[in-house]
Computed example of a mutant assay.
Amino acid sequence: MISMEFLITSFIVVVLPGTGVIYTISTGLFRGTRAGVFAATGCTAGIIPSMLSCILGLAVIFHTSALAFQVLKFAGSAYLLYLAWSMWRQTGTLELTAEENRKSMFKIAFKGFLINILNPKLTIFFLAFLPQFIPVQAPMPVLNMLVLGSVFMGMTWVVFIVYALLADKARIWIANSPGKVKYVQRTFAAMFAMLGARLAFSGR
Protein backbone atom coordinates (compact mmCIF):
# COMPACT_ATOMS: atom_id res chain seq x y z
CA MET A 1 0.00 0.00 0.00
CA ILE A 2 1.47 3.33 -1.08
CA SER A 3 0.62 5.99 1.47
CA MET A 4 -0.09 9.64 0.75
CA GLU A 5 2.67 10.49 3.21
CA PHE A 6 5.17 8.61 1.04
CA LEU A 7 3.98 10.36 -2.13
CA ILE A 8 4.15 13.82 -0.58
CA THR A 9 7.56 13.22 1.00
CA SER A 10 8.95 11.78 -2.23
CA PHE A 11 7.63 14.72 -4.25
CA ILE A 12 9.30 17.21 -1.91
CA VAL A 13 12.60 15.31 -2.10
CA VAL A 14 12.46 15.11 -5.90
CA VAL A 15 11.48 18.75 -6.48
CA LEU A 16 14.18 20.22 -4.23
CA PRO A 17 17.17 21.45 -6.27
CA GLY A 18 19.98 18.93 -6.26
CA THR A 19 22.70 17.75 -8.60
CA GLY A 20 20.31 15.89 -10.90
CA VAL A 21 17.91 18.81 -11.08
CA ILE A 22 20.67 21.27 -11.89
CA TYR A 23 22.13 18.95 -14.54
CA THR A 24 18.75 18.41 -16.18
CA ILE A 25 17.89 22.11 -16.19
CA SER A 26 21.27 23.14 -17.58
CA THR A 27 21.04 20.48 -20.29
CA GLY A 28 17.51 21.48 -21.27
CA LEU A 29 18.56 25.13 -21.33
CA PHE A 30 21.59 24.67 -23.55
CA ARG A 31 20.65 21.60 -25.59
CA GLY A 32 16.86 21.71 -25.80
CA THR A 33 13.96 19.47 -24.81
CA ARG A 34 15.25 16.23 -26.33
CA ALA A 35 18.59 16.51 -24.57
CA GLY A 36 16.83 17.46 -21.35
CA VAL A 37 14.71 14.32 -21.58
CA PHE A 38 17.84 12.20 -22.03
CA ALA A 39 19.47 13.96 -19.06
CA ALA A 40 16.37 13.28 -16.93
CA THR A 41 16.35 9.65 -18.04
CA GLY A 42 20.04 9.20 -17.27
CA CYS A 43 19.68 10.76 -13.81
CA THR A 44 16.67 8.57 -13.09
CA ALA A 45 18.45 5.42 -14.26
CA GLY A 46 21.32 6.33 -11.93
CA ILE A 47 18.95 5.78 -9.02
CA ILE A 48 18.59 2.06 -9.80
CA PRO A 49 21.96 0.84 -8.37
CA SER A 50 21.49 2.82 -5.15
CA MET A 51 17.94 1.57 -4.74
CA LEU A 52 18.88 -2.05 -5.40
CA SER A 53 21.94 -1.89 -3.16
CA CYS A 54 19.73 -0.57 -0.38
CA ILE A 55 17.13 -3.27 -0.88
CA LEU A 56 19.74 -6.03 -1.13
CA GLY A 57 21.58 -4.78 1.94
CA LEU A 58 24.75 -3.65 0.18
CA ALA A 59 24.23 -0.11 1.45
CA VAL A 60 25.34 -1.38 4.86
CA ILE A 61 28.85 -1.63 3.42
CA PHE A 62 28.93 2.10 2.71
CA HIS A 63 27.24 2.86 6.01
CA THR A 64 29.81 0.90 8.03
CA SER A 65 32.93 1.25 5.87
CA ALA A 66 34.41 4.74 6.07
CA LEU A 67 36.93 3.94 3.34
CA ALA A 68 34.34 2.74 0.80
CA PHE A 69 32.15 5.75 1.49
CA GLN A 70 35.02 8.25 1.25
CA VAL A 71 36.39 6.79 -2.00
CA LEU A 72 33.04 6.99 -3.74
CA LYS A 73 32.34 10.42 -2.27
CA PHE A 74 35.58 11.91 -3.58
CA ALA A 75 35.06 10.26 -6.98
CA GLY A 76 31.65 11.90 -7.17
CA SER A 77 33.07 15.24 -6.08
CA ALA A 78 35.80 15.06 -8.73
CA TYR A 79 33.24 14.28 -11.41
CA LEU A 80 31.09 17.28 -10.42
CA LEU A 81 34.15 19.52 -10.53
CA TYR A 82 34.95 18.13 -13.98
CA LEU A 83 31.44 19.03 -15.15
CA ALA A 84 31.89 22.52 -13.69
CA TRP A 85 35.18 23.00 -15.53
CA SER A 86 33.73 21.69 -18.81
CA MET A 87 30.78 24.07 -18.63
CA TRP A 88 33.00 27.00 -17.65
CA ARG A 89 35.09 26.44 -20.79
CA GLN A 90 32.12 26.28 -23.19
CA THR A 91 32.03 28.88 -25.94
CA GLY A 92 28.68 30.49 -25.19
CA THR A 93 26.59 29.16 -28.06
CA LEU A 94 23.34 27.24 -28.17
CA GLU A 95 23.73 26.04 -31.74
CA LEU A 96 23.94 22.32 -32.45
CA THR A 97 23.55 20.45 -35.71
CA ALA A 98 21.11 17.56 -35.90
CA GLU A 99 23.99 15.11 -36.36
CA GLU A 100 25.87 16.45 -33.34
CA ASN A 101 22.66 16.33 -31.32
CA ARG A 102 22.04 12.67 -32.18
CA LYS A 103 25.59 11.67 -31.34
CA SER A 104 25.54 13.44 -28.01
CA MET A 105 22.27 12.06 -26.60
CA PHE A 106 23.79 8.89 -25.16
CA LYS A 107 26.67 10.91 -23.70
CA ILE A 108 24.21 13.29 -22.03
CA ALA A 109 22.24 10.41 -20.50
CA PHE A 110 25.44 8.67 -19.38
CA LYS A 111 26.65 11.83 -17.62
CA GLY A 112 23.36 12.00 -15.73
CA PHE A 113 23.71 8.32 -14.85
CA LEU A 114 27.22 8.87 -13.48
CA ILE A 115 26.11 11.85 -11.39
CA ASN A 116 23.85 9.61 -9.30
CA ILE A 117 26.07 6.53 -9.44
CA LEU A 118 28.92 8.52 -7.88
CA ASN A 119 26.78 9.93 -5.09
CA PRO A 120 27.13 7.59 -2.09
CA LYS A 121 24.64 9.64 -0.10
CA LEU A 122 21.89 8.51 -2.48
CA THR A 123 22.39 4.95 -1.27
CA ILE A 124 22.33 6.06 2.36
CA PHE A 125 19.20 8.09 1.59
CA PHE A 126 17.35 5.01 0.37
CA LEU A 127 18.61 3.03 3.34
CA ALA A 128 17.07 5.61 5.69
CA PHE A 129 14.05 6.59 3.58
CA LEU A 130 12.33 3.47 2.24
CA PRO A 131 12.07 1.41 5.47
CA GLN A 132 10.05 4.21 7.10
CA PHE A 133 7.12 3.41 4.83
CA ILE A 134 7.20 -0.39 5.15
CA PRO A 135 4.72 -1.82 7.68
CA VAL A 136 6.40 -3.77 10.47
CA GLN A 137 4.28 -6.82 9.74
CA ALA A 138 4.63 -6.61 5.93
CA PRO A 139 4.77 -10.18 4.55
CA MET A 140 7.07 -9.20 1.66
CA PRO A 141 9.12 -6.14 2.70
CA VAL A 142 11.57 -6.52 -0.21
CA LEU A 143 8.71 -6.40 -2.72
CA ASN A 144 7.25 -3.40 -0.90
CA MET A 145 10.56 -1.54 -1.13
CA LEU A 146 10.84 -2.38 -4.81
CA VAL A 147 7.39 -0.92 -5.43
CA LEU A 148 8.11 2.23 -3.41
CA GLY A 149 11.50 2.64 -5.08
CA SER A 150 9.91 2.28 -8.52
CA VAL A 151 7.29 4.89 -7.67
CA PHE A 152 10.04 7.22 -6.45
CA MET A 153 11.94 6.73 -9.70
CA GLY A 154 8.83 7.34 -11.81
CA MET A 155 8.13 10.55 -9.91
CA THR A 156 11.75 11.63 -10.35
CA TRP A 157 11.59 11.09 -14.11
CA VAL A 158 8.32 13.02 -14.52
CA VAL A 159 9.48 15.97 -12.40
CA PHE A 160 12.83 16.12 -14.18
CA ILE A 161 11.06 16.07 -17.56
CA VAL A 162 9.01 19.07 -16.44
CA TYR A 163 12.21 20.85 -15.41
CA ALA A 164 13.70 20.08 -18.83
CA LEU A 165 10.63 21.46 -20.65
CA LEU A 166 10.65 24.65 -18.59
CA ALA A 167 14.37 25.06 -19.21
CA ASP A 168 13.84 24.70 -22.95
CA LYS A 169 11.27 27.50 -22.85
CA ALA A 170 13.85 29.73 -21.20
CA ARG A 171 16.17 29.24 -24.21
CA ILE A 172 14.27 32.02 -25.99
CA TRP A 173 15.50 34.47 -23.38
CA ILE A 174 19.20 33.78 -24.00
CA ALA A 175 19.34 32.29 -27.52
CA ASN A 176 20.32 35.52 -29.29
CA SER A 177 22.64 36.88 -26.62
CA PRO A 178 26.12 35.30 -26.34
CA GLY A 179 26.69 37.40 -23.23
CA LYS A 180 23.65 35.93 -21.49
CA VAL A 181 24.62 32.43 -22.59
CA LYS A 182 28.09 32.81 -21.12
CA TYR A 183 26.70 34.25 -17.89
CA VAL A 184 24.22 31.38 -17.46
CA GLN A 185 26.85 28.77 -18.34
CA ARG A 186 29.21 30.11 -15.72
CA THR A 187 26.41 30.30 -13.16
CA PHE A 188 25.69 26.60 -13.66
CA ALA A 189 29.43 25.86 -13.61
CA ALA A 190 29.65 27.58 -10.23
CA MET A 191 26.68 25.53 -8.99
CA PHE A 192 28.35 22.26 -9.99
CA ALA A 193 31.60 23.40 -8.36
CA MET A 194 29.78 24.22 -5.12
CA LEU A 195 27.97 20.89 -5.15
CA GLY A 196 31.26 19.09 -5.74
CA ALA A 197 32.95 20.94 -2.90
CA ARG A 198 30.01 20.33 -0.58
CA LEU A 199 30.09 16.60 -1.34
CA ALA A 200 33.85 16.43 -0.78
CA PHE A 201 33.82 18.23 2.57
CA SER A 202 30.49 17.09 3.96
CA GLY A 203 30.31 14.63 6.79
CA ARG A 204 28.64 11.25 6.62
Rank of each mutant, 00 (worst) to 15 (best):
Arg31Ser: 10
Thr19Gly: 15
Asn176Thr: 09
Gly57Ser: 03
Phe30Gly: 00
Val158His: 10
Val162Gln: 11
Ala170Val: 14
Gly196Tyr: 07
Leu165Lys: 09
Val37Tyr: 02
Thr33Ser: 15
Arg34Gln: 14
Ala189Asp: 12
Thr9Val: 08
Gly76Leu: 07
Ala39Leu: 14
Leu199His: 00
Ala189Cys: 15
Lys121Pro: 00
Leu52Tyr: 00
Ile25Pro: 07
Ile61Gly: 02
Gln70Trp: 12
Met155Lys: 01
Phe6Gly: 02
Leu165Asn: 09
Gly76Trp: 01
Leu52Ala: 11
Val184Phe: 09
Tyr183Val: 15
Thr97Phe: 11
Gln185Arg: 10
Ile134Asp: 10
Gly57Trp: 02
Met194Ala: 12
Cys54Arg: 01
Val158Thr: 12
Phe201Trp: 08
Pro178Ser: 04
Pro120His: 06
Gly57Pro: 02
Gln185Cys: 04
Phe188Lys: 08
Met155Glu: 08
Met194Leu: 15
Pro49Met: 01
Arg34Leu: 11
Trp157Gly: 02
Leu195Thr: 05
Leu195Pro: 00
Tyr23Val: 05
Arg102Glu: 11
Ile174Tyr: 03
Leu195Lys: 03
Trp85Ile: 11
Ala68Ile: 05
Gly18Gln: 06
Asn101Ser: 07
Phe11Ala: 02
Glu100Tyr: 07
Lys103Trp: 06
Asp168Asn: 10
Trp157Asp: 06
Ala45His: 04
Tyr183Ser: 15
Leu165His: 10
Phe69Arg: 09
Phe188Val: 04
Leu143Trp: 12
Gly203Ala: 14
Trp85Glu: 14
Gly179Cys: 09
Met4Asp: 15
Lys169Leu: 12
Ile47Tyr: 02
Ile22Arg: 08
Pro49Tyr: 08
Leu130Cys: 00
Ala197Tyr: 15
Asn176Cys: 07
Tyr23Gln: 14
Ala78Gly: 13
Thr156Met: 11
Ile115Thr: 04
Ser86His: 09
Met155His: 00
Met51Thr: 13
Met145Arg: 06
Lys169Ile: 05
Ser77His: 04
Leu80Cys: 10
Gly36Met: 10
Phe6Thr: 07
Phe126Thr: 02
Gly76Tyr: 07
Leu80Trp: 07
Leu56Asn: 08
Thr93His: 05
Glu99Phe: 14
Thr93Met: 13
Phe160Glu: 13
Ile12Ala: 12
Val37His: 06
Leu195Cys: 12
His63Asp: 14
Arg102Val: 08
Ile48Gln: 06
Lys111Glu: 11
Ser86Val: 10
Ile12Gly: 04
Lys111Val: 06
Phe30Ile: 09
Asn119Glu: 01
Thr91Leu: 13
Ala68Arg: 08
Lys111His: 10
Arg31Asp: 05
Gly28Phe: 06
Gln137Val: 13
Asp168Phe: 14
Lys103Gln: 12
Arg34Val: 04
Gln132Cys: 05
